[in-house]
C-alpha cells in the first residue's frame, strides 16, 4: 500500500516536472520570437540616436561618425544577432545615452554605461513596488470576491462591484491624485513623493512606496475580485455544493471550503495577468509619485532613442509576462486534485 502511494507520488512528480520543463521550453521559444518582434519594432521607430543627440549640429559627417561608433551602420540582421548573442550571455549592451563617446575608441567603456547596470536598480525598485502591491491587492481582492459571492446580489455585493469598477475605469493618475489629496494633503499620513534610493531602510522604503502601491491596488482589484466572485458563483449550482448545504454547513464554509478550492484555476490566471501588469504597465503611477522604476526609464529611453535600453526593457517585460503565465499554468494544474492524485 505504502509502496503504491510512493510510486504514485513519484509518477506525479515526474509528470509535473515534465509539464514544467515543456512549458519552460515553450516559454523560451516565445521569448525568442518576441525578441525578433522587439528588435524589429524598435528599429522601425522614426529618427535615430545620432540625429537626436546632435540636434542642430547634425552634419552628415558627425552623424555618420556616431553611427559608426555605435555600430548603427551595420545591417539590421547582423546587429540583431550581435544583440541576441550578447543577451544570451547576460550582456545587454551599452546605453547610448550614458556613453562617453571617446571610450568607444579606447578599450574601456566603463561600468556606468552598461545597460544592465542602469536597469538593475530600477528593476528591483519596480519589483519592490509590484511585490508590496501584490501583498495588499491579492488577499484584498480574493477576500472581497469571496464576500461578494457570499452576499451575492446584496447591497454589499453591489457596492463592491461599483467601487472596484469605478476605480478600474478611472485613469490611474486621477486615482493617484485623489489618494494624494486625502492621504498626503488633507491628512498628511503618507509622503506624496516616493523618491527612494539605494541604501534606504526597509521601513522608510515601505512608507514611501505605500501610496503608489495603494493606487495600483485600486487599479488591479476589480479584475481579480470579479473573477473570484464569478468563479465561485459559477460553482454554486454544482451538486457537491448542494450536498454541502444539505449537510448543514454554514454559507461561509460552503464557499471557502467547498467552492473556492475548485475555483482556483481561473483566479490564479487573473492574478498572474495582473501581477504582470504591475511589472510592465505602471509608468503613469511612477511618474506621478516620482518613483524610480523601470517604467520611467523605459519611456525616457524611447524619447531619446536609446535603443539598447529600450530593447532590454521590452525583453524584461516579455520575460515577466511569460514567466508569470507559466507559473499560473503550473499552479492551476497543481491545484487540480485529479492531476495531483492520479488513479
Amino acid at each position: 500500500m505504502i509502496i503504491t502511494e510512493k510510486t504514485r507520488t513519484g509518477e506525479y512528480l515526474s509528470t509535473v516536472l515534465k509539464i514544467i520543463l515543456q512549458r519552460l521550453a515553450l516559454g523560451l521559444l516565445t521569448l525568442f520570437v518576441v525578441s525578433i518582434l522587439i528588435f524589429a519594432a524598435v528599429n522601425l521607430l522614426p529618427g535615430d540616436f545620432a540625429q537626436a543627440i546632435l540636434g542642430q549640429g547634425a552634419t552628415p559627417e558627425a552623424v555618420e561618425a556616431i553611427r559608426r561608433d555605435l555600430g548603427l551602420d551595420q545591417p539590421p540582421i547582423t546587429r540583431y544577432f550581435q544583440w541576441l548573442v550578447g543577451a544570451v550571455q547576460g550582456d545587454l549592451g551599452n546605453s547610448f545615452a550614458q556613453a562617453n563617446f571617446a571610450s568607444f575608441v579606447g578599450a574601456d567603456s566603463g561600468n556606468k554605461a552598461s545597460v544592465a547596470a542602469q536597469i538593475a536598480p530600477r528593476f528591483w525598485n519596480t519589483m519592490f513596488l509590484a511585490g508590496v502591491t501584490a501583498l495588499i491587492a491579492v488577499p484584498f481582492s480574493v477576500l472581497l470576491g469571496i464576500l461578494a459571492a457570499l452576499y451575492r446580489n446584496s447591497a454589499f455585493d453591489k457596492f463592491a462591484n461599483m467601487f472596484t469598477l469605478s476605480s478600474i475605469s478611472s485613469p490611474e493618475f486621477f486615482l493617484a491624485y485623489i489618494l494624494i489629496l486625502f492621504l498626503a494633503v488633507l491628512n498628511p499620513v503618507l509622503p506624496s513623493l516616493s523618491n527612494i534610493y539605494q541604501g534606504m531602510g526597509l521601513g522608510e522604503r515601505l512608507e514611501k512606496t505605500l501610496l503608489p502601491a495603494l493606487t495600483l491596488t485600486l487599479v488591479v482589484t476589480a479584475h481579480m475580485m470579479r473573477m473570484t466572485r464569478a468563479a465561485i458563483i459559477n460553482l454554486l449550482a454544482s451538486p457537491y455544493i448542494e450536498m454541502a448545504r444539505l449537510k448543514g454547513m454554514s454559507p461561509m464554509r460552503v464557499i471557502v471550503r467547498h467552492a473556492l478550492p475548485n475555483a482556483l484555476a481561473p483566479i490564479i490566471n487573473v492574478v498572474a495577468l495582473n501581477l504582470a501588469y504591475l511589472i510592465t504597465g505602471v509608468v503613469v503611477v511612477e511618474v506621478v509619485f516620482v518613483y524610480p522604476g523601470i517604467g520611467q526609464l523605459f519611456v525616457d529611453s524611447v524619447k531619446i532613442r536609446d535603443i539598447p535600453v529600450v530593447q532590454a526593457c521590452c525583453l524584461i517585460f516579455a520575460a515577466a509576462y511569460i514567466l508569470l503565465n507559466l507559473t499560473a499554468d503550473i499552479m492551476s494544474i497543481v491545484s487540480n486534485p485529479r492531476l495531483r492524485h492520479p488513479k
Partner: peptide, 13 residues
C-alpha cells in the same frame, strides 16, 4: 441526503 450522482455530489477537491 443521498444524491443521485455520487460522482458529482462528492467535492472533487
Amino acid at each position: 441526503y443521498v444524491a443521485q450522482s455520487a460522482a458529482a455530489s462528492f467535492n472533487p477537491a
